[in-house]
């Protein structure tokens, strides 16, 4: 079994350029499997030209269904539901608001006439696609659905299996924004995290919070400053913060409309042009490769035992 590295690209704040940078790294890395773990709003497929190979249903959620014929109108279900999902009509008969239901099943257990059952619902789909740069595992959570953390774990597990079966040494994970359950599921047990930020007050605030999550789960972290020329004072503040915490700033990439132009063309920025931005992304990949010890037989950051085996770490589904 080859030594597998997993790198998660996250940011805290949305729109800092995670997906554009992930796509570029996927093109540069060769020999990898790509996992789009932004299951709410997967966009990597828009620049990697995937051709769909497999589609799978994702049915992790359950929803309570009340049989109106059986319901006696006693209201016990509405009393015990803590999610406000049971709505009682004037005559007392109850109905469930599916978007509020968290599938706990307490109402079904408590119903004295057995009128409530739980049904598995289709909460999304996940896919395996071929791209010119490697296999892409991606997903689509149905709008308004829960269990995004479990879907992220499904995508990561499949990406890892494919990497091991095909002898690829790297799984590159495009993570979601935020710090909640899908981010934790994207991050748990990875070899290292790449945090993409920009020199703005909100992005720095959000980076601090996502760095706290990385520390909480003991994940080695590198920082990339995108649109680095937006504000010189803030750029220096990020550099100082990283220096204080012993974090490497792996790249500073100035604002360049070339990212948008490449996206409109449906390609990654390194395929679209060969200017300054692709050159900086090339050196980012070389640094990352060095840190990962790919073709250099070094562990990430020289610390053993940090390679990812999430199935042994924190449970991935929330």
């Amino acid at each position: 079994m080859p030594d597998l590295r997993e790198v998660a690209i996250i940011s805290g704040k949305g729109g800092t350029g995670k997906t554009s940078i992930c796509g570029a790294l996927a093109v540069l890395a060769e020999e990898l499997v790509i996992a789009d773990c932004d299951v709410d709003a997967a966009n990597l497929g828009l620049i990697l030209r995937p051709s769909l190979r497999e589609t799978h249903d994702f049915t992790a959620s359950r929803t309570a269904i009340i049989d109106a014929q059986e319901c006696s109108g006693c209201g016990r279900c509405a009393e015990v539901c803590r999610f406000g999902a049971v709505i009682q009509a004037a005559d007392g008969t109850a109905d469930v608001e599916p978007l509020a239901c968290e599938g706990c099943g307490v109402c079904a257990h408590i119903c004295p006439v057995g009128a409530i059952r739980l049904e598995e619902s289709l909460s999304g789909r996940w896919f395996v696609s071929d791209t010119p740069h490697g296999t892409l595992v991606h997903a689509r959570l149905g709008p308004g659905e829960e269990n995004s953390g479990k879907l992220v774990t499904t995508v990561r597990n499949r990406a890892r299996e494919i990497a091991q079966a095909d002898g690829k040494g790297l799984v590159l994970i495009d993570g979601p924004p935020g710090i909640g359950c899908p981010v934790i599921a994207s991050l748990s047990g990875v070899t290292c995290a790449l945090v993409v930020t920009e020199p703005t007050v909100p992005a720095i605030h959000d980076m601090d919070r996502v760095l706290a999550v990385c520390r909480h789960f003991d994940v080695p972290t590198l920082v990339v400053v995108n649109r680095s020329d937006l504000d010189e004072g803030n750029r220096r503040a990020i550099a100082a913060r990283c220096a204080r915490e012993g974090l490497e700033v792996a790249a500073e990439i100035p604002y360049d409309p070339v990212f948008t132009r490449a996206m409109v063309e449906g390609r990654t920025v390194v395929e679209h042009s060969d200017g300054e931005v692709p050159r900086l992304l090339g050196s980012l990949w070389e640094r990352l490769r060095g840190r990962l010890g790919l073709r250099a037989r070094l562990e990430c950051g020289g610390r053993p035992g940090l390679r990812g085996r999430p199935e042994e770490g924190r449970p991935g589904g929330f």
Partner: peptide, 9 residues
């Protein structure tokens, strides 16, 4: 928040 899953809902 961004997204379309439970926190946004």
């Amino acid at each position: 928040p961004p997204g379309t899953s439970c926190p946004a809902v």
